[in-house]
């Protein structure tokens, strides 16, 4: 009888251990997960306009304005997005969807790019949650920046996919403010839009940076060539 209950206890213990283990996101190393990018070592990246699956037409502009900085901080030479987009438009290419069947090798000839970054945006907006109301009845909001983005980096030499990543990023936009500060803010600010416009770009850039963290560092990064074993959490949803 005693032996039986000990057996059951062990089973429960292992079951809990198994559940806990399967709930913990696994950590993977950059070099193991994306060996091709390490092998080819692209330096020049051409960023194509994103494929926008949201209903917001401004998302393309927001993305174009906020991707160059975080991508450059990963150590890559990012071709000037404004210039390359303009050239593509002159060639009659307004949507990246039109380029999906184009061989990536063509971008090597035309722009001197080593790799092309294709981006799909499924979600990109700010969600306001009313958390309280001031004495005057003004709502106190808590805002979140939400982004669902997919990256695919293709080599212009081999045509192979060097790196890909799908991330849902959620950033608490009021994390720097206490609840009391939020109430004061709600009393003083008539238009929350002003707050949004002021910080929207910063949050969009932070979200891009988070989404790019699984990318291996390029030649201009101080730890270039040394981050092969650097680990990242293999998790789709990132909350900050």
């Amino acid at each position: 009888m005693k032996r039986r209950s000990v057996g059951i206890l062990w089973m429960v213990f292992f079951l809990i251990l198994f559940i806990l283990n399967s709930c913990t996101p696994k950590r993977v190393s950059k070099g193991v997960e994306h060996p091709l990018i390490y092998r080819e070592g692209p330096a020049v990246i051409l960023v194509l306009p994103p494929m926008n699956r949201t209903f917001d037409v401004e998302v393309k502009e927001l993305y174009a304005a906020t991707i160059a900085e975080p991508l450059s901080l990963c150590g890559y030479y990012v071709l000037p997005i404004e210039v390359t987009s303009d050239i593509l438009k002159m060639e009659g290419v307004y949507d990246t969807e039109l380029l999906l069947n184009t061989s990536p090798q063509k971008f090597k000839t035309y722009f001197g790019a080593d790799a092309v970054l294709y981006t799909t945006i499924d979600h990109w907006n700010v969600m306001d949650m009313m958390v309280a109301a001031t004495v005057e009845g003004k709502p106190v909001y808590h805002s979140f920046f939400l982004m669902d983005i997919q990256f695919m980096l293709k080599s212009t030499s081999s045509g192979k996919t060097l790196w890909k990543c799908h991330r849902e990023v959620e950033i608490d936009m009021d994390k720097r403010m206490s609840f009391l500060a939020q109430i004061i803010f709600a009393i003083l600010m008539d238009d929350r839009e002003v707050f949004r416009t002021k910080y929207y770009i910063d949050y969009a850039m932070e979200a891009n940076q988070i989404a790019l963290e699984t990318l291996l560092d390029g030649k201009y990064h101080p730890i270039y060539g040394m981050d092969r074993n650097a680990e990242f959490v293999d998790k789709k949803k990132i909350e900050k």
Binding site: A64, A65, E69, I201, Y220, H221
Partner: peptide, 17 residues
């Protein structure tokens, strides 16, 4: 700092908008 991007993103976005 690795780079000084200053106000680049904001001014580009304002221009595009």
């Amino acid at each position: 700092k690795m780079y000084y991007w200053e106000n680049y993103s904001q001014s580009l976005y304002d221009f595009k908008k």
